[in-house]
């Protein structure tokens, strides 16, 4: 169905961006900026995984932090228990992914048959449960105080870690792009648009939703592992609601239902967070920068439900169709249709 040219404008743009990112640490000769970019990549991975649920399948989960936390804790615990070699790190990523996959499979199987409200509440409760476990199981997690550990020696150089995360980001992006463009991904979009109709076409929507949840959980676990390495410290905050909220904000502001959107959202939010908290010394109001994002987010939900990328894309499509011939954009499917008021 998709006949994409390898040297289309889209792919060329990606290539240019990636090349620019490869040279970034050498051009911007600042440690802080490299660390900031690494952070942006890590949260991009998390937000993309969240978008598989929110943007592509149309389910709101408030429990995404638990998969992030599972990844972060697995890596931290394995690296501090055994030695800090690259091998153990890679194993810990795999173990975290497997563990997150199992958890998301079980949780999804139990909860995804429920309606959206109940699902959101139950995921909130289950991730709260994980947070409590992380806090109480002090022998392993050291509770709220957390613990430090030694990252693999290779990653002592921030630039190398930057490249490692960049590679992860590109790989995850390509894999997820393949995933959402596969027939399976198309069914997920159908579930988002109208679950009942999809079911009446003979698809077992529960299976597809569980698959989406497992994929999202596994990818979130990867971002958690990377996050733990970037801080070389882990405490219960990796399981907290704030992580889910971050992913949610990035996805909504960047653009739901696209894979670029979460990356843009992560770029916007992490950069703004970095500079606004810098401004807080002069203007105390910026200490509460999250207010601006909360408001921006509310406005985005009401007026731009497609986010930055979605809005730009629709503008681009209408511009192109106006230039060529009057024709409605067929590619862009809105996340949520305006349903009848009382359904």
């Amino acid at each position: 169905m998709r006949h994409e040219k390898y040297f289309s404008l889209k792919n060329l743009t990606f290539l240019i961006i990636i090349i620019a990112l490869i040279f970034f640490p050498y051009v911007a000769d600042s440690r802080t900026l490299t660390i900031l970019m690494t952070q942006i990549f890590i949260f991009s991975i998390l937000a993309m995984s969240y978008d598989i649920l929110l943007g592509y399948t149309g389910i709101v989960s408030f429990g995404h932090a638990m998969f992030f936390g599972i990844g972060a804790y697995t890596t931290a615990i394995l690296l501090s228990t055994y030695n800090n070699t690259m091998m153990i790190f890679l194993i810990s990523i795999i173990v975290g992914m497997i563990f997150a996959g199992i958890v998301s499979f079980l949780v999804g199987l139990l909860t995804l048959r429920l309606k959206s409200h109940f699902f959101a509440m139950l995921t909130l409760a289950i991730s709260g449960l994980f947070l409590v476990v992380a806090e109480k199981w002090r022998t392993v997690t050291k509770g709220n105080d957390g613990f430090t550990f030694r990252a693999p020696d290779v990653f002592r150089d921030r630039v190398i870690f930057y490249f490692f995360v960049l590679v992860c980001l590109v790989v995850v992006f390509l894999v997820l792009r393949r995933f959402v463009n596969s027939p399976l991904g198309k069914v997920l979009i159908a579930v988002r648009e109208n679950e009942q109709r999809t079911r009446s076409l003979g698809f077992r929507t529960l299976h597809y939703k569980v698959t989406a949840s497992v994929v999202a959980g596994v990818v979130a676990s990867l971002s958690g592992s990377l996050y733990a390495i970037s801080l070389r410290f882990v405490n219960t905050s990796v399981m907290s609601m704030d992580i889910t909220l971050d992913a949610l904000l990035m996805t909504i502001i960047g653009g739901v239902g696209t894979l670029i959107g979460p990356i843009v959202g992560s770029l916007v939010i992490e950069t703004a967070q970095h500079y606004l908290s810098g401004l807080a010394n002069d203007y105390p109001i910026f200490e509460r920068w999250i207010i601006f994002f909360g408001m921006l987010y509310i406005l985005a939900v009401i007026f731009f439900p497609k986010g930055i990328v979605g809005t730009v894309y629709v503008k681009y499509l209408t511009w192109k169709s106006k230039k060529a011939k009057p024709q409605l954009p067929t590619q862009s499917v809105p996340l949520v249709k305006d349903k009848e008021r009382f359904e």
């Binding site: 207010i291 994002f293 949520v336 009848e340």
Partner: peptide, 23 residues
């Protein structure tokens, strides 16, 4: 603005919660 749309309701009220507690 979001009557009848569950996903948007969940998202928007959570955002408002964020604003309220930060305020």
């Amino acid at each position: 603005p979001v009557y009848g749309n569950h996903v948007q309701q969940i998202l928007i009220t959570l955002g408002f919660m964020l604003v309220l507690s930060e305020c």
